[in-house]
């Protein structure tokens, strides 16, 4: 009985975690999908390419400097049907993104959702992080409370 229960829980967890279709030509094991973070910066480049798109943004550091962060998203053939095109992220525009960071600590991650300067949320994610409507709704509350890390937000329950 307990074994069955554990299997059911496992299946549920798996179905939730695999909801987004992966169109990748590599795995997403490079990203730490156990944590979601948020960063705000200005767009340096939106590389709207197949098989993966990449959003590059300059993020201000605490010391006043800037770091170029790289975020991997889905392919144009998928993003076009979500209302995202090659001009969605214009260079110089302010954008806030959620991402699952690279495990090796470099300034990059799998992108989840993105909030444009006009407040609109879009979902450019591939399988590297969750950009679903459910994730956006969850993060709206967390952002309002000032959180930029899922681990911090989840501690306060």
């Amino acid at each position: 009985m307990r074994t069955t229960f554990r299997l059911l829980i496992g299946a549920l967890v798996a179905s939730l975690l695999t909801a987004s279709a992966a169109m990748a030509h590599h795995s997403f094991a490079m990203f730490d999908r156990s944590i979601e973070k948020v960063a705000t910066g200005t767009v340096a480049r939106w590389a709207f390419n197949a098989p993966h798109s990449w959003l590059y943004i300059n993020v201000k550091n605490a010391d006043g400097g800037e770091t170029l962060w790289s975020f991997e998203g889905s392919a144009p053939q998928s993003l076009l049907t979500r209302g995202i095109s090659g001009s969605t992220f214009e260079p110089g525009a302010t954008v806030t993104v959620s991402f699952c960071p690279m495990k090796d600590g470099r300034p990059a991650g799998g992108i989840g959702w993105a909030r444009l300067a006009n407040g609109t949320f879009v979902n450019p994610s591939d399988g590297g992080c969750d950009g679903s409507v459910k994730a956006i709704e969850k993060w709206k509350a967390w952002l309002a409370a000032g959180y930029t890390s899922s681990s911090d937000a989840q501690k306060v329950k």
Binding site: I9, T18, A21
Partner: peptide, 26 residues
């Protein structure tokens, strides 16, 4: 039991492509 669940969760968390490889995927 907890260790088993943790191992299973880790494996599941890191194995999304196995799901999309099945019918219903792509």
């Amino acid at each position: 039991s907890l260790r088993l669940v943790a191992v299973a969760a880790f494996a599941l968390f890191n194995a999304p492509s196995t799901i999309v490889a099945q019918p219903g995927a792509f």
